[in-house]
Structures are given as C-alpha cells and as structure tokens.
C-alpha cells in the first residue's frame, strides 16, 4: 500500500496490513519530527509533495525493493501538511521470510524515498524563521542534511 495523507499515520493498522502466516519477520520504520537539528530548535515542520509524481516514485521504490528482497507485503505512508514535534511523518512496513531481509528491505525503501520521492519539509524554527530543507542545494550554506 502506498499512501500520501494529511491525517495522522495509523502505524498499527499499517503493520497489521503486512502481517502474514507466510513470513517470520515484520520490520516497521517510523520517521518522527525531531526537536533539535544541529543545535537549532524546531517548533514544527510543514511537508509539501508533488502528489502525482510522489505516488509514482513511491510505487517504483516498492518495485525496486521487491526486486531485491523476498517481500511478502509492504506499505509506505507519508504524511503531508503541518506536523508538531514527535509526530510521525513517514512509516514503512515490510514483511519477509527472515528478519535480515525485512530490516534490509525497509532500510532500502526509506533511504530511496529520501533520495527520489518529491516531498519537501519546511523547518519552522523556534526563533520564528522558516526554511525549506533542500539537501545540497547551492543556495543555502546552512542547508540541513536529510533526516
């Protein structure tokens, strides 16, 4: 299941949706809103997507993951809009026959998502300033690395 949502991510339902009697391992990754990045205090984040392309690229991430590991079921959900500290921005759930496959597949999926899926976060810093996060962009010398 691939989903972009404005609602809170129901990671319990997502995890249940990938469980199966055919496998022995389920890995769940959650990305959450961190309070401090390189010494700067975050108040909240705003996520924006290019939805049509994000959906298509997420489907490619799933296909690439399935090519490399024996994935039984997987789901990726990304939250959009305004998120407060501690809220879940992304969830990846994968089931595979064995644990090392599930861990590796989930890691590949989240790493690839962060490279290619057109979603952006804007930092709302506690000092009242805001900043789009664009890793490696020429503009911002203070660019915040992904994560």
């Amino acid at each position: 299941m691939i989903q972009l949502t404005q609602e809170q991510i129901d990671y319990t339902a997502l995890t249940e949706s990938v469980r199966s009697n055919q496998v022995g391992a389920v890995a769940l990754f959650l990305g959450t809103v961190r309070e401090v990045t390189h010494g700067r205090q975050t108040d909240s984040l705003d996520y924006q997507a290019y939805p049509e392309m994000a959906q298509k690229q997420l489907e490619k991430v799933e296909a690439e993951t399935r090519e490399q590991w024996p994935v039984e079921k997987m789901g990726i959900v990304h939250r959009l809009g305004h998120l407060d500290l501690g809220e879940i921005s992304v969830a990846v759930a994968v089931s595979c026959p064995h644990r090392h496959q599930a861990f590796e597949a989930a890691r590949y999926a989240i790493d690839r998502l962060k490279e290619v899926v057109p979603i952006w976060k804007k930092e709302n810093w506690s000092d009242g300033t805001t900043e789009w996060v664009h890793p490696g962009s020429a503009e911002s010398s203070s660019a915040v690395p992904p994560g």
């Binding site: 990305g31 996520y47 997507a49 290019y50 049509e52 392309m53 994000a54 990304h78 921005s89 992304v90 989240i110 998502l113 962060k114 490279e115 290619v116 899926v117 057109p118 979603i119 952006w120 976060k121 789009w132 996060v133 664009h134 890793p135 490696g136 962009s137 503009e139 992904p146 994560g147």
Partner: peptide, 12 residues
C-alpha cells in the same frame, strides 16, 4: 507534457 521543477527532495 506535464513539466515540474523542484529543488532537492527532503521527505522522510
């Protein structure tokens, strides 16, 4: 064609 332009992505 549908064309879009955007800076490096930062989802996750």
């Amino acid at each position: 064609s549908e064309v879009a332009c955007f800076p490096p992505v930062s989802g996750g």
